[in-house]
């Protein structure tokens, strides 16, 4: 696959995203926030984690108006696969490519630790190699990750299986204790109605090698490869 990773001023997980993309055999393209065109033949665009524009005003609020975002929105609207991780998720919400918003953690603290995620829908480009209900171990690192949306939007997401990952206990139970930030319904990751855009607060790109404690994050990259009919050694 051809994966483009966008770097905004203040991105700090772009190198990790490129590394994880390369680990799974992909051709990686570094994209700059000022770019006004995308390389031809891109399969996936990743908006990485970090603190784009210093999180000034709101997380993702200024990055969404970066020149490259016009192209990212066009790419997504044409069916291209877009994956926002952490700050990338916040940017996708600000850009209106995903519903809802991410606000200050309920306990007001930055949270940096491994969490457990339950895969809620395996019929998407991002989760197709997972088994239903599979529990993944992946780290979070954020201060503003509490997913919120109006009751109507949350109901719509639940009814149409757009919640892809939920924070759970190691044995897959949805509890308040397993929720690191107070997200509604323990939501960690969602997709859009067309299922080609995903936002995820935890960092699968930091969990792609057993040396780092878990390689469960590979599931996202391997699912994307399967979706694109690419075999990965």
């Amino acid at each position: 696959m051809n994966i483009g990773v966008v770097t905004f001023p203040g991105s700090n997980c772009d190198a990790d995203a490129r590394h994880a993309s390369a680990l799974t055999g992909n051709t990686v393209h570094s994209l700059w926030h000022k770019d006004t065109a995308l390389p031809s033949g891109l399969d996936v665009i990743i908006l990485p984690g970090g603190f784009s524009y210093g999180d000034y005003l709101r997380t993702g609020a200024i990055a969404r108006f970066s020149p490259i975002m016009t192209e990212v929105v066009r790419f997504a609207n044409a069916g291209g696969l877009v994956f926002g991780i952490c700050n990338g998720f916040q940017i996708l919400c600000e850009a209106g490519l995903l519903p809802g918003a991410l606000i200050r953690n309920q306990h007001l603290s930055f949270v940096c630790k491994d969490v457990f995620l339950r895969v809620e829908n395996t019929d998407t480009p991002f989760t197709n190699i997972c088994s239903p209900g599979q529990v993944l171990r992946v780290p979070v690192a954020h201060g503003e990750g509490r997913y919120t949306a109006s009751a109507d939007v949350i109901k719509g997401l639940e009814d149409s299986a757009q919640v892809l990952y939920r924070y759970v206990t190691p044995d897959g139970q949805v509890t308040d204790e397993a929720n690191p930030n107070g997200s509604l319904n323990n939501i960690a990751g969602v997709t859009n109605a067309a299922r080609n855009v995903m936002g995820l607060m935890p960092h699968p790109e930091r969990a792609c090698e057993l040396l780092l404690g878990s390689d469960d994050g590979l599931t996202v990259f391997l699912s994307l490869a399967r979706h694109c009919n690419v075999s990965v050694a």
Binding site: L57, A61, I62, F65, C93, E94, P99, A101, I103, A149
Partner: peptide, 8 residues
């Protein structure tokens, strides 16, 4: 457009 996010 920019200064606030009507979602929240």
């Amino acid at each position: 457009k920019l200064l606030t996010n009507p979602v929240m």
